[in-house]
Design a binder for these strands. Structure first.
Lengths: 217, 217
DNA sequence: GATAAATAACTGACTGGTTAGTAATTAAAT
DNA sequence: ATTTAATTACTAACCAGTCAGTTATTTATC
């Protein structure tokens, strides 16, 4: 490096950063318009490159889809696990952290559009769907089940079919995210405050899971 | 030729039946493959006609989409309302009928794929989405709110934010339908029994909504 | 009641626009 | 000078929507 004039010229060649820039652009557009309706030209343009460049890093549109999931979501799961471990001794608190943490780390971000995306395209891209189930849905449910089981063990929650209840408890979270990325965008719906929604949900579930008062009917 | 074979010949012209046959074919395919991935040639073929015929009855692919919603779902809402009126004096029973009726009349049928469809395409077809919100989602929620309010009035359910709680209670129903039409199809997931799922959900909600025992904390 | 004319339902080849993916080419870095 | 990054121009396939023409059914005429 003899001379230093590079500050002005736009940096052109960024092999390391490109994949991340492209998956970020793809995530935005996939979430916004759906997978099928998103043109690879657009993805490239939003990342500031041409379509040809995109093909230097990803073999196909489907490969890009898979990368979006892998880069975007898989790391979040691990973060969530750590968050919960901090309250492993208090199941009620753990449940609360799950709900609000899910929203803070995932639902409220751009990633919150991924459930919509995956649900729509699962049939058309079975391999991506299987990856998503294995790496996201099952670990996420396992984490929820951990919360429930711990509550039962501590005598705070009553015994339930935890397989079914984990499914049921994930639903309002996913629904909140789906709603935001579908009808809330195009139809003027009475604005729903996520915090109030989660608070109501937490309240409902806590009472629904509470052990029946001492020997009561 | 002299011989008469007219009884054998398939009836060709069925002006009255066509739209219904076409929307039925479209529903199946839209649910199965998604709106964007469904070709109108396929829809026509499944209805036993050519693509040209489809355009005699529907102006565009979007118009067909709208017709699928209108013909398929809107009538169900009215059916649901009647079902609930039969138990207007018993809120717990009403809630139970809502959950299981929703599944029987809607979720378990082919129409159960429509929420997935609408969620995916709401952004791309705002007019269809607005119609769906107005004619399906809002009436459906109003019906649920009726159940809750009646329960509160009768002193069976505790007071809650019924706007938020209706949303929350719809979520596990929709989730069940979405699941069936996405991941359950392409990934070998441990089979989830809808009846058991609904039973668990009903149990959870009933306890979650119960008025706190006489003055208890 | 047979035949012809008119109409309604339907067909399938075609068009025009779109887009995933490729190949030829240029620019930059070492 | 060679390798790597990126662009541009291209291709091949796809599909919504059209339309000139065909077949079936109804109506009119004798």
């Amino acid at each position: 490096m003899t001379d230093r004039v590079e500050t002005k010229a736009p940096v052109r060649r960024r092999k390391e950063a490109r994949p991340q820039e492209l998956t970020a652009a793809a995530l935005s557009l996939f979430v916004e318009k759906g997978f099928a309706a998103t043109r690879l030209d657009e993805v490239a343009a939003r990342a500031g490159v041409s379509k040809g460049t995109l093909y230097l890093y990803f073999d196909s549109k489907e490969a890009l889809f898979l990368a979006v999931i892998r880069e975007g979501i898989v790391p979040i799961i691990e973060e969530g696990r750590k968050l919960l471990e901090a309250h492993a001794d208090d199941p009620e608190r753990m449940l609360r952290e799950y709900l609000f943490g899910w929203w803070a780390l995932f639902g409220s971000t751009e990633l919150g559009g991924v459930p919509k995306l995956m649900t729509s395209e699962a049939q058309n891209f079975p391999e991506v769907a299987q990856y998503y189930v294995r790496e996201v849905i099952l670990p996420g449910k396992a984490l929820m089940r951990e919360v429930l089981d711990r509550g039962v063990a501590k005598g705070v929650f009553r015994q339930t079919n935890s397989e079914l209840v984990t499914h049921i408890l994930m639903a309002p979270l996913l629904h909140l995210a789906l709603w935001r990325h579908s009808f809330a965008v195009c139809c003027q719906v009475p604005d729903m405050d996520p915090a109030a929604y989660l608070e109501s949900f937490f309240d409902l579930v806590l009472k629904g899971l509470a052990v029946t008062p001492e020997g009561g009917k």
